[in-house]
Design a protein around this nucleic acid. Structure first.
Lengths: 210, 210, 210, 210
DNA sequence: TATGAATGAGCTTTCATTCAT
DNA sequence: AATGAATGAAAGCTCATTCAT
């Protein structure tokens, strides 16, 4: 799950568990600070203070500020993705999967409005230039989202729909992200979750090839 | 209207024209640097060097780094909006307007792939906090986009379509922005302009209420 | 009179007179700005703007900021001294001269409360280090003050007083300057001119050697 | 009372004592640099170099240049005042107190000739504008001086003298400060301490109302 | 002669990172 | 292992001075 935890939790000793605990405390603190003002306005001292550790301690767990930021982002994105994977694996009908996908994403946006901002920060240069592995990993996860949607639309076409899976996956993600952005900007008339049925209708309404 | 529109050389002296020229040179240089590494990684020294001016000169034309950034963003966004307004005013049928809108946006994305990143940078906290007038002005322009699309979908409904104009304006913008983002990230299979007909079909296909 | 004016005003042409006029305008403007915030907070641009000249023009009349400041100070101090000399030359009795001295100084303080501050600024380092000629000239004028007072007290001793001229000249100047400082600081209960008789009484009262 | 008086090493840990030590080292270095060229010519880099610390370290102990300057001034002034208070509290006769006051001030001037300049710098505009608490605190201490002298002269009047306490306090301070200034400027024939008896004679000589 | 646009050295201040304890 | 004092490079911005017009 976590890239730095031992895979076999049976063999973890107290030491390892405490270490992982402190690591997560730091990540929690860092996420809070990063969400407040973005990467550049966060300082290691603020994060250390929030985490109730010394500044030096942060560097025992993470190589530098960028590495800490990367872990925060990826932990959140992976948490989102894992929840999505778990959810979709419970259903096999594409209609149900599409509904769950839209519900899950918009519920997440509702609960974690800063998430969108945090994710958008990835496209910034310093992370671009100096920590390309983050952007790569993020791209992969973004593509996983698109692939899930494409598979759904491919299934739909087997039921007589005529979606362009490539375009529709982009359009669906784009629509959901636009709802998130506009919500974050305060431009939305309704809460994100109230758009669920509208989005589904918009996708499915009258699209069947008969 | 447009703050850069005093191009009436009839009433401008040589001084004014040269002043405006230098101002645009600085804005060009700043845009280049800002696009490369984002607001925070850009330094005034880099911009000055790129513009082939001394650092002090930048401060003769702009009050500070933020002000310069704001002008860069707004110049670009307003240029986009003005082109859009001019274009749409030539047609009155909603179908034609929608087609022009999608074409215009995707053509722009094709020509200026950095534009999306530049615009996304606005949502960052520091600019948020310290220069709220930028974010306000940007919001207004974003809402103008949405309003144009809503008007188009309202017209469409008079022709028997059953669009939800609110949702469809968000979805259309979101889809176009997603194409822009994915293009910028290198995740797109085709160039943005190749998605034009797909997007239009996706919106219009089978949506008529009959 | 003015160190930069031709001595023979008969031979001054229009050019010379206009030049001197502009010079004084700049000095007036500079004095106003220097008095407002001191030497370091004044900028050449402010002074130029106040004088309604271009910045470059300032450098046609004065070598640099320090030189301009020096001229401002010395013009004021010399004006003070010249007025004092003229005034004292009208009387020969030491009692009258002492009275005039005290009156003159305190009236000046009343009219030009910033004068004290301006003069104190001389002791600052930049002028100290880089323009020692100013401090020297100022010292000379300060010593002229002390000498005038010493002469008065020497005369007084011939009338039976037992002043220590050296100490009394310092004490008298110090008292008058203290009134000026405290007035400038807003710590004085009465206006400077209301201290005139008190100061004279304090010096003369019961001092006669009988 | 005195902000630097936490010298009770009983209750202080090693950390606290070392912290206070470094703080004083920085203040010493800053005082040296400020005395040399005044507030504006001093740079934080010079002070850091003199203190043998990095520049950043200065900002761990003081909020900014102005704060550092304020502490330097107030440390010195309060040290002067505390010594004065302690000294005067040992005697109750006004004659003795006046003698001690004059001696103390002139001895201080002798030992710390830069002190006067440092104090005069307070009256400068920038410090005036931006750090008004310094000027306020300084005014209070100056007024404490004047009050001490006024009390002395009020006592004297009970013994038959006819001093104007208000004026005499100003005159006495002014005289002592004038000795300090002239000494600093190199205009004095004798060392400050050699003026002690002269000043006392000047004040008391023949002043009794009989 | 008068100008003011252009300059760039130099300032204060911040903060990620290190390392002695 | 945990600390946080110390660091110093690097940033934004100012302004006295110059010089082409």
């Amino acid at each position: 799950m976590n890239r730095n935890s031992n895979h076999n939790s049976q063999t973890q000793g107290r030491k390892e568990r405490e270490w992982e605990l402190r690591r997560q405390e730091i990540l929690d603190a860092a996420q809070k600070i990063f969400e407040k003002g973005g990467y550049f306005n966060a300082t290691m001292a603020q994060i250390a203070s929030e985490a109730e550790f010394g500044v030096g301690t942060l560097y025992q767990f993470f190589p530098n500020k960028q590495g800490l930021f990367a872990e925060v982002i990826l932990r959140e994105v992976e948490s989102f993705m894992q929840g999505l994977r778990d959810l979709l694996s419970t259903r096999s009908l594409w209609q149900e999967q599409l509904k769950l996908f839209v519900e899950y994403k918009l519920t997440w946006v509702d609960k974690r409005p800063e998430f969108q901002r945090l994710v958008m920060e990835i496209f910034y240069a310093p992370i671009h230039d100096v920590a390309p592995q983050i952007i790569d990993e993020f791209k992969e996860l973004h593509m996983e989202n698109l692939q899930i949607l494409q598979d759904i639309f491919i299934q739909a076409n087997k039921d007589g729909y005529t979606f362009d899976p490539d375009l529709m996956s982009i359009a669906t993600m784009g629509t959901l992200n636009a709802i998130a952005s506009d919500w974050y900007m305060g431009l939305l008339k309704k809460a994100p979750i109230e758009y669920i049925s509208g989005v589904l209708n918009g996708i499915l309404g009258g699209k069947r090839d008969v």
